[in-house]
């Protein structure tokens, strides 16, 4: 807790320079703009996973559920404000009758993203009351089931395009560089997410989550309202996942129910890998992990095309088996070992 408390000048400088890098990055590296946007969204995914998985000890394999709900939720709002969603999807979003002008597109995004966050948060509240009473591997496998079931159900609903997926609104030409707009929205979301979590973890709520992770029965016997805390954390995480999903949908433009929206075997497990790689249960860990992961992923996709899943699978195994504390955790463990020596 103490680590988040002080906003020293040194820290402010660090934050300011990070912010400057974030603002300048797409202008300096225009060729990697898409990857940078994706990275920012991955940071949100990893942070949100870690709030519940790392800080609270509830390892969800189904957080992709909230990404997918946000993705569809935003797209439905963006389209539904101006057109009939069923007709739009039946025409595969094409044709001359489904054109969005600048005010329509902006309104759609402005309402779609918060709506996505609310939809996912609401789903987390509903489901959380049921599944957060389970622990350990039951929770893990149950959430895995939730994520995959959602994809299968989405693939069966013609109104949202069924198995052939849904397109997000085509950005109007007049708007200019939409990709850059999406980048800055993602940057804003990632910063909001990191600051919100930094604040949360500095409060007693953050301590309560850690207490639940370390010994939930004890926390309960000490009178902590563990269930309420768990559901609250999940709802907050889901809100950010939903908003990130909304942006992600607009970045990739095409929402496939199983491959993009509820992609348990890709994004669903990547977000766990990112948090683990950087360091579970720390604030910096998921951010560091997302950066390292995104670089590795791009390398795999470039040099190991066709075998990229194999490479990622091997990476998952290697991290789970040999490096479970992650980068930040590794550094911190060495610090803790020193403190222990001093104690003796």
């Amino acid at each position: 807790m103490a680590e988040y408390r002080a906003l020293t000048p040194k820290r402010l400088l660090l934050i300011a320079s990070l912010l400057a890098v974030g603002v300048a990055a797409p202008l300096v590296l225009p060729a990697y703009q898409l990857q940078l946007t994706e990275l920012l969204l991955f940071i949100v995914f990893a942070l949100a996973w870690d709030l519940v998985g790392g800080q609270m000890g509830y390892n969800s394999f189904g957080n992709v559920l909230f990404v997918g709900l946000g993705m569809y939720g935003a797209a439905i709002v963006q389209v539904g404000l101006f057109y009939d969603v069923g007709l739009y999807n039946a025409a595969r979003g094409g044709g001359t009758q489904f054109v969005f002008d600048v005010p329509q597109f902006i309104t759609g995004l402005a309402l779609g993203i918060p709506a996505a966050a609310l939809i996912s948060a609401f789903a987390a509240w509903l489901l959380g009351s049921l599944v957060l009473t389970m622990r350990g591997h039951y929770f893990a496998i149950c959430t895995l089931g939730l994520g995959i079931a959602a994809g299968q159900i989405a693939a069966g609903i013609p109104w949202i395009g069924a198995g052939s997926g849904m397109l997000t609104p085509n950005p109007p030409e007049a708007l200019g560089d939409v990709a850059l707009l999406l980048y800055y929205l993602a940057l804003g979301l990632a910063i909001t997410c990191a600051l919100t979590f930094a604040w949360l973890l500095s409060t007693r709520f953050g301590l309560a989550l850690n207490a639940i992770r370390d010994d939930e029965d004890k926390a309960e016997a000490m009178g902590l309202k563990t269930h309420a805390a768990k559901v609250t954390a999940w709802v907050i995480a889901a809100g950010f996942l939903g908003a990130a999903g909304a942006l992600y949908g607009n970045v990739v433009r095409f929402i496939d129910p199983v491959q993009t929206a509820f992609a348990g075997a890709t994004i669903g497990v990547w977000m766990i890998l990112m948090a683990l790689l950087g360091g579970k249960g720390t604030l910096a860990g998921p951010i560091v992990g997302a950066i390292v992961f995104q670089i590795m992923k791009e390398l795999f996709w470039t040099y190991l095309l066709g075998w990229q899943r194999v490479a990622l699978g091997l990476l998952i195994i290697a991290v789970a088996v040999f490096f479970p504390a992650g980068i930040v955790g590794f550094i911190r463990e060495r610090g803790s070992a020193k403190a222990k020596e001093q104690n003796q």
Partner: peptide
């Protein structure tokens, strides 16, 4: 006790909630 928290944080999270 909560092994992953500092001794004082253990106290802070236990205080008359």
């Amino acid at each position: 006790i909560y092994g992953g928290l500092s001794t004082r944080d253990n106290m802070l999270v236990s205080a008359s909630i």
